[in-house]
């Protein structure tokens, strides 16, 4: 699990987050990850709903939001997929979109799987 988390979350990005709160006094990392977890879970549901309804605008909003917040916590693969989806919706090129949406759903789940254990133990992950 630990190893998986390391691959989905970029160490460098996480390090930047830690630098914002060097002595961990404000428990920034935990708060950010919690915020991400709740927001990502909600966005994940909205994503699946929108996909079922074929609501492209709903999908676009989800990927736009996820794009920047996942980048912030170092989920770079997820951020990249979101950006690609957002760009193709904007340019209205649907080629390969369903595959990308599947990939995004997979990657989102993977990121959440990596984040959740980091929240079970308070303090800095090792």
């Amino acid at each position: 699990m630990n190893g998986n988390g390391v691959t989905v979350l970029d160490a460098e990005a996480l390090q930047r987050l830690l630098e914002l709160d060097p002595d961990g006094r404000s428990r920034l990392l935990e708060r950010v990850l919690r915020a991400f977890e709740s927001s990502a879970k909600r966005l994940g549901e909205q994503f699946r709903d929108a996909r079922t309804r074929g609501d492209m605008a709903g999908i676009r909003h989800v990927v736009h939001t996820l794009k920047s917040s996942s980048a912030s916590i170092g989920a770079l693969a997820l951020a990249r997929i979101c950006a690609e989806i957002e760009a193709s919706i904007r340019s209205e090129s649907v080629a390969g979109l369903p595959e990308r949406l599947d990939a995004m759903d997979r990657e989102l789940k993977a990121v959440l799987q990596a984040v959740t254990p980091m929240l079970s133990t308070p303090g800095t992950p090792t």
């Binding site: 917040s69 912030s72 916590i73």
Partner: peptide
């Protein structure tokens, strides 16, 4: 910002 993560960070 509507994105909690971004807002917080």
């Amino acid at each position: 910002d509507d994105d909690e993560v971004n807002l917080l960070l």
